[in-house]
């Protein structure tokens, strides 16, 4: 187990190194930051050269990369081209909001999707299943910006129950979490339903029924427990993508998250912020995957963490 974790941490270093290469060079394909920063008026050649030197952009590319990598080893992502402040502070400033939103979205989706998925599978072919499937389809097909705007219209503008933007307290979390959670729960409910249907056909479900235990004990203890593995995998992956991919929802609710930070930084060609943000998210993503993989061995005793690698 410990050996496995150490191996995985070593993998993490490799992954982060690969991402650093990718992000460092691809962000430089987007254009020249200096031309964006000095877009007002007609900058002189001297001014441009001066700014480049200040930002360290005058050095050869491989030297720049080496400097970036050296900082990375010490968790120093450099300074923002725009604000001049350390990138790590900018990220840490937004990390809490991003994490809170991701956790909120996941929680909402779990609370909705798992009961819907289980009921759909158990009552297969009935109207309960029909509603469950319609719900899933709506979750999958609703664009999240539309759902977000609708929620704002209803609960913030008309009813005035909840704030529509910002991040000042837990009440701010409700609408964006529901927006994210609803969309996710559509897919999750379908996944739970299909995993449950597969498990319910297994022989050990007949064995459980033949013991004379209650229907719900069969469904929850015997069936759902076995359907948990694909569910947990999915939740883990979604959590990762929510960290960086909730940009639209962050925009709608003016959420001060990392997604927005990175988008703004890309628009301004603020290289260090983009690099730092992406690296930070990828570290969290790898870490979440590790936690998911470790949880497998708790869910299913046949999977030993030391065994074949689950990437």
């Amino acid at each position: 187990m410990i050996g496995y974790v150490i191996r995985r941490l070593f993998h993490t270093v490799l992954v982060v190194f690969a991402i650093s290469l990718l992000i460092f060079f691809s962000i430089r394909l987007t254009g020249d930051p200096v031309s964006v920063m000095l877009s007002a008026g007609e900058p002189s050649k001297e001014a441009i050269a001066q700014l480049k030197a200040n930002l360290g952009l005058d050095k050869p590319l491989y030297v720049q990369y080496f400097i970036f990598l050296k900082g990375l080893v010490m968790f120093d992502f450099g300074e923002s081209f725009r604000s001049g402040g350390p990138v790590i502070d900018l990220i840490m400033d937004k990390a809490g909001a991003t994490l809170a939103l991701a956790v909120g979205g996941i929680l909402v989706s779990i609370v909705i999707a798992i009961p819907v998925g289980i009921l759909s599978a158990v009552k297969r072919g009935t109207f309960v299943d029909f509603f469950g499937r319609v719900f899933s389809l709506m979750g999958i097909s609703f664009p999240n910006f539309w759902l977000g705007i609708m929620l704002i219209l209803i609960f913030a503008v008309n009813l005035k129950w909840l704030p529509s933007s910002g991040f000042d307290g837990p009440q701010n979390l409700i609408l964006p979490s529901i927006t994210l959670g609803m969309i996710l729960s559509g897919i999750l409910a379908r996944l739970v339903r299909s995993s449950m249907l597969e498990v319910m056909n297994q022989q050990y479900i007949s064995t459980a029924k033949s013991k004379g235990i209650s229907d719900w004990a069969v469904i929850i203890k015997h069936a759902f427990r076995n359907a948990l593995l694909p569910t947990v995998t999915f939740i883990g992956l979604q959590f990762g993508s929510l960290l960086g991919g909730a940009v639209i929802v962050e925009q709608i609710f003016s959420w001060p998250g990392i997604g927005r930070l990175i988008i703004d930084a890309i628009n301004q060609r603020d290289y260090p912020v983009v690099q730092g943000g992406v690296i930070f998210l990828s570290i969290i993503m790898v870490f979440v995957n590790l936690v998911v993989d470790l949880s497998y061995s708790l869910i299913d005793p046949r999977i030993k963490s030391g065994g074949s690698g689950h990437a």
């Binding site: 007949s206 013991k211 427990r225 005793p301």
Partner: peptide, 20 residues
């Protein structure tokens, strides 16, 4: 009745026990 008065064993021992 199930289990108490009438009990049953099945054809596939490999899959009739819950793996978890």
């Amino acid at each position: 009745v199930r289990g108490k008065r009438i009990a049953m064993i099945f054809q596939e021992p490999m899959s009739s026990l819950n793996p978890v």
